[in-house]
Nucleic acid binder design. Structure first.
Lengths: 383, 383
DNA sequence: GGCCCTTATCGAATCGATTCGAGGCCGTCG
DNA sequence: CGACGGCCTCGAATCGATTCGATAAGGGCC
């Protein structure tokens, strides 16, 4: 209930310093790391004037400023201590970025990495830095990372959605930390940045329909934190917790494509795509799907590899399409048919929203457009 | 020279708060975010007692503690402000992790990601968090990120080496921030964690030699920040700035393998490996190398793909080996011959070193062992 | 009953910087 | 010559918590 019992944060922090302040009678350089006060007294000015020399926030004579800077140099003072500055300003300059998984998995997803890159590029000029906050490492234990409870941050960004009852989201709300959610859905008190998943997927489905495909299977992203893998029956389709697989499925249906099979994967990885291909494409030619739509490019490339393994030609025997628009060098010379999303722009949009929230504005939710890219992995339905 | 002119950090931070503190004559709940003092007065105890209720660092009666916690709950106080705590303790609980490149590139490297993951796993229980600090984005401009100059951090970790004159390393030294360098070399005042590149590569070279290979080419990681791509002549071999390509080259020679060609890549990516294969393996069978050793698995898998593109069979026509020991699902069913390094252990070792330094100890440099894994991509030299 | 020790609480100092309003000095203008 | 204004500099308050030493209350033991 309270969550205040020392959750480890104090292991290294709370022990204080064993440092004993020596009386220091003379003007001799002190033994601890110099502070602004030391610099000021060495330069023969007041602390406030010394502060001005560094911050530039106020009138100061050039000669005085130089004297302070010289004193700082001779004392080995390397600028104002960020901790003091932060307490005073009430801002830490830190953007907490919550990734939805352990890093090693979350960052195998190029989309997440590129998004993060775009975000960093945008907020660096604002003087902000990114604190990485891993999501729940084990699927069973939805505990929030201790950093969510007690790290200093001015705002948080959640990569990959999150539902309204997400414990991380709740903890952040309790702390009064504003949040930007990437690909969220139905969230209140939170700014959302996303793409037009549904429309993009509908375009892709229409493309396949126009090519004459009538038996289309689909390979989805995880439905929720339980991350199952395998064919999903009707019941399972009811409990899709995360919004991206939901919206991308809906897009298919929007274009009149009712998938003959839905294969759920535990993660967006090549190997799971290959497993899906083995499960979906093993049947005889008459009943086998003529096209497979994957909800990510990594899954799609796994499907391509799996299909080849089964001796099927792409796209002559089976068409394969993905979603994201990544570069997939190991598929060369093939080019995946996919829906290209503007990942770097999305990161920038998130960064922009972060900046505006911190500036006191309340930006609108944003939905970025996507574009169908037809490659060489889709073709007319066989016969 | 000074670097103190506001480098952007103040864009959002230094503006202070436009908040005007209302006089507040009664005991009415105040309008700003409640502080420990508010909680204390609401609970009818002193601030110090209230502090004890949260930190547990001292004797406190259960009833009192409960009263404080209740008051906190009714005021919406969600725990001590980390900024105040940090200033007092002098610790930020932040580990700055300097990646050697823009994130989107650095994190295409699975080794970096897994290492980071291992590091995070290790330091999370210590109450520490990772602040991401991108390296120089453009190769021309070796400016250090503003975060290096002025972000709060207790210690920094540099992924991927860095030389003694690295401006980032200099800036951190000036600030008095301790540093752990991954795969560094010849560095003073810094703890280094690395692997036995040279020995591992020597083992691999011996393996190829034993298979009868006499014409061995090698594909290397970037030599330095200029990141050229192409065949390296003798002159170019002199200015290898970064230590990993250097040591891995040396390892080959240690085992008596003098490479017939050295192809330098601008980054450890599949596509550069493929390009290397096209450059190295295009010649006639008599002069063509019979084996290619890449300095990373991503490069090696590019070489395999490039070789196949040229119509060469692996390993019948050409043997290919890598370094790192990654899972490469898209190479299946082939298994790359490679040198396996304990990446997660390396991350844990870095985390451990971080913890010990913060605890006041001075850990030794560490060199982790590697192991040769022979797969299906190397075989006897053709005839 | 007095003394001592333990336990609980409090007051005040401290961490390192920023910022606001006050005041000093000097030059200029009337 | 006096008043006014501009430019610098300074002192003091403040941000929000932790912690040390002092104090008081309560209980056990002789």
């Amino acid at each position: 209930m309270c969550g205040y019992a020392d959750g480890g944060v104090n292991r290294l922090l709370g022990t204080g310093r064993a440092f004993t302040p020596q009386p220091e009678s003379g003007g001799v350089p002190v033994s601890h790391r110099p502070t602004l006060a030391d610099v000021a007294s060495a330069a023969g000015v007041s602390v406030s004037t010394a502060s001005l020399a560094f911050s530039g926030a106020g009138p100061i004579a050039d000669a005085t400023k130089q004297r302070v800077l010289d004193a700082a140099a001779s004392l080995g003072y390397s600028g104002p201590n960020p901790l003091g500055r932060q307490l005073r300003s009430g801002k830490s300059g830190i953007v907490g970025v919550v990734v939805g998984d352990a890093l090693r998995r979350a960052f195998r997803e190029p989309v997440a990495v590129q998004l993060l890159d775009g975000l960093v590029d945008t907020i660096t000029p604002l003087g902000l830095g990114v604190l990485l906050i891993p999501g729940p490492t084990s699927p069973e234990q939805p505990a929030v990372d201790p950093l969510v409870e007690s790290a200093a941050m001015d705002i948080a960004v959640m990569l990959w959605g999150g539902t309204l009852d997400d414990p991380t989201l709740e903890a952040l709300a309790r702390r009064g930390i504003p949040v930007v959610v990437v690909e969220g859905h139905d969230l209140t008190d939170v700014v959302t940045v996303g793409i037009d998943d549904r429309g993009g997927m509908a375009d892709l489905a229409a493309h396949l329909r126009d090519l004459g495909h009538e038996r289309v299977a689909t390979v989805t992203l995880p439905f929720g934190p339980d991350r199952r893998g395998g064919l999903a029956d009707t019941a399972r389709l009811q409990d899709i917790a995360w919004s991206i697989p939901r919206r991308r499925l809906d897009g298919l249906v929007d274009a009149g494509v009712q998938p003959v099979a839905v294969y759920e994967t535990p993660a967006s990885l090549v190997e799971h795509g290959a497993a899906a291909a083995r499960a979906l494409l093993a049947g005889p030619v008459g009943s086998r799907p003529t096209a497979v739509v994957a909800q990510s490019d990594l899954l799609a490339s796994g499907v391509v590899l799996g299909a080849r393994e089964l001796g099927l030609r792409v796209p002559e025997d089976v068409s394969v399409a993905g979603f994201d628009g990544l570069d997939l060098p190991w598929l060369a010379p093939d080019v995946l048919t996919t829906v290209v999303q503007p990942i770097a722009d999305k990161g920038a949009a998130v960064g922009l929203a972060v900046g505006r929230i911190l500036a006191g504005e309340t930006p609108e939710d944003e939905v970025l457009p996507v574009a169908l890219r037809t490659g060489t992995t889709t073709g007319p339905a066989p016969r």
